[in-house]
């Protein structure tokens, strides 16, 4: 594998480099775009497959599974979103499932797809990063869409003037207008940034740990020492992967819940 002819720093850098075309701002991370689109297509495909054979009576296996996810999302939305807006639940469902699927790519052995990719492209230096959520572009894109919705619903329910008043008189009342403007501005900006950076940071760090664990066997195992390091890598990799199942689910859930909460705040006229 690539670690055999690269130092550990190069190994990690290589794995954290997107496959891209273009330059400057007009750079496109092909792997992020393709993988996330494929996962989205998987969601739609499963949705259409199940949707075509919907069973009103006792649901079968796959439908049952999807229904339980739907009910879970629906319950979460109902718990923290006291208003009526038909877009919130599908939005939350999309975020939860899509983010979870993209995060799940993290559990695939770190070298598997990059290695296959070098064979397919016949280029030993071909870059491939298959976890879209370790690309800040992917997480920020979702966060910005959510942010746009937050602003839209703020303006819709509070009015332009009402929304500006929040900036002027919140949180300290009318005698601290300059402070209020700065505070509210930061508060609003923190919403998309925290959404994007939290998911990105968690998954990036998780990926990094996987890479470090992968390094154990790759670089330290020379000769008889491999007898010790290779099993250690396997055990550590398993442990981290099991722990990571929790993290990817939790991160998807947090992204969804925060989206719902932000949108609920946007709907609140008395805020």
């Amino acid at each position: 594998m690539s670690s055999e002819n690269l130092g550990s720093v190069e190994y990690i850098q290589h794995h954290l480099q997107n496959n891209y075309v273009g330059s400057g701002f007009w750079t496109f991370h092909l792997d992020t775009i393709v993988v996330s689109a494929l996962l989205g297509a998987l969601m739609i495909g499963v949705g259409m497959y199940v949707g075509r054979r919907l069973e009103t009576g006792v649901p079968g296996g796959l439908q049952n599974f999807i229904e339980s996810i739907l009910e879970f999302v629906d319950k979460t939305v109902k718990d923290s979103f006291p208003f009526r807006n038909p877009i919130i639940a599908p939005l939350a469902l999309t975020i939860f499932v899509w983010v979870w699927l993209m995060n799940f790519m993290d559990l695939i052995p770190v070298d598997l797809f990059p290695y296959l990719f070098t064979i397919v492209t016949n280029n030993p230096d071909a870059y491939l990063k298959i976890v879209p959520t370790t690309d800040l572009n992917a997480t920020l894109a979702m966060a910005l869409v959510v942010f746009a919705l937050v602003i839209y619903y703020n303006v819709k329910f509070k009015g332009v003037v009402g929304y500006l008043k929040v900036f002027l008189f919140h949180p300290f009342g009318k005698f601290f207008i300059p402070v209020n403007i700065v505070m509210t501005f930061i508060e609003e900006l923190a919403k998309p940034l925290s959404l994007a950076l939290r998911l990105f940071g968690n998954l990036f760090a998780g990926e990094l740990v996987f890479l470090l664990i992968a390094l154990i066997g790759g670089t330290l195992a020379v000769g008889a020492a491999a007898l010790f390091w290779a099993p250690l890598q396997a055990v550590l990799g398993l442990g981290w992967a099991i722990f990571h199942i929790l993290i990817i689910t939790l991160q998807a859930f947090i992204f969804m819940v925060l989206t719902i909460v932000y949108l609920a705040m946007a709907h609140d006229e008395g805020h």
Partner: peptide, 29 residues
């Protein structure tokens, strides 16, 4: 790792995905 045009593609993908999920998954289900 820097922000670039991928962001735009991802935004489009995300919006389309929300629309599709609403149409084929959430709505009928």
């Amino acid at each position: 790792m820097s922000i670039n045009a991928t962001l735009i593609i991802q935004i489009i993908t995300f919006v389309l995905l929300i629309w599709f999920v609403n149409k084929v998954l959430w709505g009928p289900m």
